[in-house]
């Protein structure tokens, strides 16, 4: 027997209905809270989107990064021209020296060889700069992806982004092996290469 005064008279169906109404009221209150939270989040996102748009991030992809890449390309071109001129002069010296003969000619030929070797800097710096340009392009793509997510890209810009993403697809195994020059402390040395080939260390030394 219950101690509650009304429990003896309460219809079980009415009791369940009362409980359902209470639960529903709580659920509606919770939904209102969630909706309010969502409104606030949407408002914050909208404000963030407006702030990002006011910074004109499209300029990063359309102006700043291409301009930086152009400057780097100009460096490669200038060093290539300068290296070509150095090589021209070294080849003239070598041709003259070959006609002379003797000990002085040997010394000069040796010096010309060192000039040829040194000119390989242009290949290495060119490859390093290409790596930097590739990194800039990657940053540009990330920026574009962020802008696309915020719906801040024009249809043309969005189409260009999709084209870039598609162009990235290639042979992943081969691409993984194309890393270009490493920093000195990360690169394998010629002696280590020779060891992999099971031969004695290189003769002469001097490189790496």
């Amino acid at each position: 027997m219950s101690d509650h005064p009304d429990s003896a008279q309460m219809d079980p169906a009415a009791g369940r209905e009362q409980l359902d109404r209470t639960a529903m009221a709580r659920l509606i209150d919770r939904q209102k809270d969630i909706l309010e939270d969502l409104r606030q989040m949407a408002s914050l996102l909208d404000a963030a989107r407006s702030e990002i748009a006011s910074l004109k991030p499209q300029e990063i992809g359309s102006n700043f990064l291409p301009s930086a890449a152009d400057e780097l390309d100009a460096i490669v071109e200038a060093t290539e021209q300068a290296t070509g001129q150095i090589m021209d002069s070294a080849e003239i010296i070598e041709a003259v020296v070959e006609k002379q003969g003797g000990e002085v000619a040997e010394q000069l030929t040796e010096a010309v060889t060192r000039i040829y070797e040194a000119c390989s800097f242009q290949d290495i710096t060119g490859q390093r700069i290409t790596k930097v340009v590739r990194t800039l392009k990657s940053v540009e793509e990330r920026v574009s992806e962020m802008l696309a997510a915020l719906d801040l890209l024009s249809p043309d810009e969005e189409a260009a982004l999709h084209a870039q993403t598609a162009a990235r697809a290639g042979d992943p195994d081969e691409a993984d092996l194309l890393n270009g020059p490493q920093l000195p402390d990360q690169a394998i040395r010629q002696d280590d290469v020779d060891a992999l080939f099971g031969g004695p260390p290189r003769e002469g030394g001097g490189d790496r």
Partner: peptide
């Protein structure tokens, strides 16, 4: 065989 750039004439 495999030569790592930069290299010299002796290598």
């Amino acid at each position: 065989n495999y030569i790592v750039k930069p290299f010299n004439a002796e290598t």
